[in-house]
Amino acid sequence: MAIATRTVDLESIRLRRGADIRGQIFFGLLVVSVVVAFAMVGSVFWNVVDGASEIVTERFWDFLVSPSSSDPGKAGVAQGIRGSILIAAIVMMTFPIGIAAAVYLEEYAEDTWVSRLIQVTVRNLAGVPSIVYGLLGLAVFVQALRGLTGGSTVISGGITIAILVLPVVVITAAEAVRAVPASLREGAYGLGATKWEVVRTQVFPAALPGILTGMVLAVGRALGEAAPLLVIGAVAFYTTGNNDFLEQMQGAFTALPMNIANFAKEPAESWRGHAATASLVLLLLVFMVNFVAIVTRARISKKLGS
């Protein structure tokens, strides 16, 4: 009696499953979406560089140091650059508040309703649209505190933007502080340090690279924000106070993103290059800030790691 045998070819089992067509289609779609995302990134930057090429080769320096003008051949962004730098400086002055708030939340706060309230408000403030901060600035700094800020000045704008980016600083700094290993704190407490000494000498230095990252994110955001400035009354175009520092602080002001919006809204072709070049300057500023932070951060981490 013959025993019926059947050899099973492993290869045939694999083949019976057929090619993984669904898997390949899915993978294809994923690759397409990655390519599309890259195309977005690439075309955004290409659009800026391409549009800026003419002014960059012909009169880049002139563009950087000229004030606004209705003549496309003369207009520049000097006022915008000055405004943006002043705003960034004011924003940086408020960083200690954000860092202290983060340290409070992570190191000091016990689980009371006050600390929970602070946590909730910080999280929600991060989600409030930037133009709403403009309303706050208009009501508080431009109108109520006119005597101190001088109305629609770069001081009002700077403080408003500082408030706008404060949640970014608090959230990233809090994450950095949270990541500091408990053993560092315990070691210091074991030596008899007070809480403040632990924070100052152990937690803060160890969290510094992370805090720095948050500060850079915040400055980058501050440099690019225009919506609150629109509401506060930054003007896109002014002719007085070109070089006087005093007038710059107390009079009309503008910022680079305001310049860009103004140029971009002009339907005439002759302003296209201005918008692109101003965008290029803004992007360069943002990337420069990032670069400085990356280098500093690397040096600090190396130092602390050793």
């Binding site: 075309s43 549009g51 860009i260 971009a264 965008s279």
Partner: peptide, 20 residues
């Protein structure tokens, strides 16, 4: 690379929208 998009200010994207 994709996250650089997050650091591009929105005015630049507004300009991108009408010019590109």
């Amino acid at each position: 690379l994709i996250e650089t998009l997050a650091s591009v200010p929105s005015v630049v994207l507004g300009f991108f929208a009408i010019s590109f």
